[in-house]
Simulated assay, not measured.
Amino acid sequence: MDPAQRSQAISRFLLQSPPGEINDVLNDVRNIISDDESLEEIVHPALKEYNLAQFIVADVPGADHNSIVSDAARVNGEDDRFLDPRSKTSFRFDHISLETSEPEVVEPDAESEPFRVALESSVLTYLAAHFHDGTASVFADPQSSTRFIVQIVANKYNPVNFWSGRWRSEYVVDLDAKTVAGRILLNVHYYEQGNVQLETSHQSSITFPPTITPSNPSGSASKLLALIADQERAYQESLSDTYHEMGEKTFKGLRRALPLTRQKLDWDRVLGYKLGAELSASKGVFGGGS
């Protein structure tokens, strides 16, 4: 395998890593490459792509909360500097160590900030009510004072019981168009005595009433979050129904309900047959019987 093919293969492995397991994949790759300097050159672009796509959570310097690292959080003109609008701080992020540094104060857009803050407050309330361990960030679109991006991520890692999962959702709120364009991405990995991954996505589009306006930030933000909550609840219920049906119908259809004889096996009799056969064999070996 030439260097270009090797680099592409390693990148694919990293980008397909299940939630919370990318370090395990990276360590396996390191054992194959056996050259940390070459490895860093190969994996850095892949790790950056992975982190941005997966809404990796970063510690905000000087703050008591986390923020999402994503394309929406990227500070214009700087490749590895990201914004935490909640603390009005930007920071540099290392995609390999996942550490933050060099915090700087950022002045928000005065026109969009009141609605962004109201939307952030409603999102955080929703997060606390519905996600056990989640992080959310609300960004103002630098190109429009009436456009906002809501991002939510929740991670659950349980290696002791061999599973991990990640929920990501993103909503683009456009107050001029009166629309919310949303997407939900879900990854779950079960790997006890096997290797099963679920990766699914859902797109949504909401048209909201003209009563939701920038002139009423608090009330409008609360109404928007109610619409988003309805979308996420409906999607979770549809997933639950789908997998219940799979368990009741699809998986049962993959195996025979009865053997070819159309009769259930009597396992007690089977064990009796086995015991009788062993006794007969013993009599033959030891010369027993009449």
Rank of each mutant, 00 (worst) to 15 (best):
Gly62Tyr: 05
Phe13Ile: 10
Val60Thr: 04
Val75Asn: 04
Leu98Phe: 15
Leu98Pro: 12
Ala63Tyr: 02
Phe55Lys: 02
Ser97Thr: 13
Ser7His: 09
Pro19Ile: 04
Ile68Thr: 10
Thr125Trp: 01
Ser122Trp: 01
Ser17Lys: 00
Glu37Gly: 00
Val106Ile: 15
Gln54Asn: 15
Asn31Gly: 15
Asp79Glu: 13
Arg74Leu: 10
Pro114Val: 09
Ile42Val: 11
Asn51Gln: 15
Leu52Val: 04
Ser67Arg: 05
Pro61Leu: 07
Phe55Pro: 06
Arg116Ala: 03
Asp109Cys: 15
Leu14Asp: 06
Leu52Ala: 12
Val57Tyr: 01
Tyr50Pro: 07
His95Asp: 14
Val57Thr: 15
Val25Phe: 10
Phe115Glu: 10
Glu49Arg: 11
Arg81His: 07
Arg116Ile: 02
Val69Ser: 01
Ile33Tyr: 00
Glu102Ile: 01
Leu39Thr: 09
His95Glu: 04
Glu49Trp: 02
Val106Pro: 05
Pro61Arg: 12
Val117Cys: 02
Ala118Glu: 11
Phe82Ser: 00
Leu39Cys: 07
Glu99Pro: 01
His130Ala: 07
Asn23Pro: 01
Pro103Ile: 04
Glu37Asn: 10
Ala9Gln: 15
Ile56Ala: 06
Leu98Arg: 14
Phe115Lys: 02
Leu98His: 14
Leu83Tyr: 09
Ser87Val: 08
Asn27Val: 11
Ser121Asp: 10
Pro85Val: 13
Asp80Ile: 02
Leu52Tyr: 12
Leu98Gly: 08
Gly77Lys: 06
Leu47Gly: 09
Ala128Tyr: 08
Glu49Ser: 11
Val106Gly: 09
Leu47Phe: 10
Ala9Gly: 04
Asp84Met: 04
His132Ser: 10
Ile10Ala: 02
Phe115Met: 13
Pro108Ser: 07
Glu107Gly: 01
Asn27Thr: 09
Asp36Ile: 06
Val57Leu: 09
Glu41His: 12
Leu26His: 05
Arg81Ile: 14
Ala129Gln: 12
Phe13Trp: 10
Lys48Tyr: 07
Phe131Pro: 00
Ser38Ala: 13
Asp59Glu: 13
Asp80Arg: 03
Gln8Ala: 15
Leu39Arg: 01
Glu49Phe: 09
Ala72Pro: 00
Pro19Gly: 14
Ala110Asp: 08
Gln54Pro: 01
Asp64Pro: 02
Ala46Pro: 02
Glu49Met: 14
Asp71Thr: 03
Ile32Ala: 11
Leu15Arg: 07
Ile10Arg: 03
Ile68Asp: 00
Val43Trp: 08
Gly77Thr: 14
Val57Cys: 15
Pro18Tyr: 11
Leu119Asn: 08
Asp64Asn: 15
Val106Cys: 08
Val117Met: 06
Asp35Ala: 12
Thr89Val: 12
Arg81Asp: 06
Leu83Asp: 05
Asp94Gly: 12
Ser38Asp: 15
Arg30Val: 03
Ala72Thr: 13
Ala4His: 12
Asp79Asn: 07
Tyr50Ser: 09
Asp28Thr: 04
Gly62Asp: 03
His95Ser: 03
Ser7Met: 11
Pro19Met: 14
Glu37Asp: 12
Val117Ala: 13
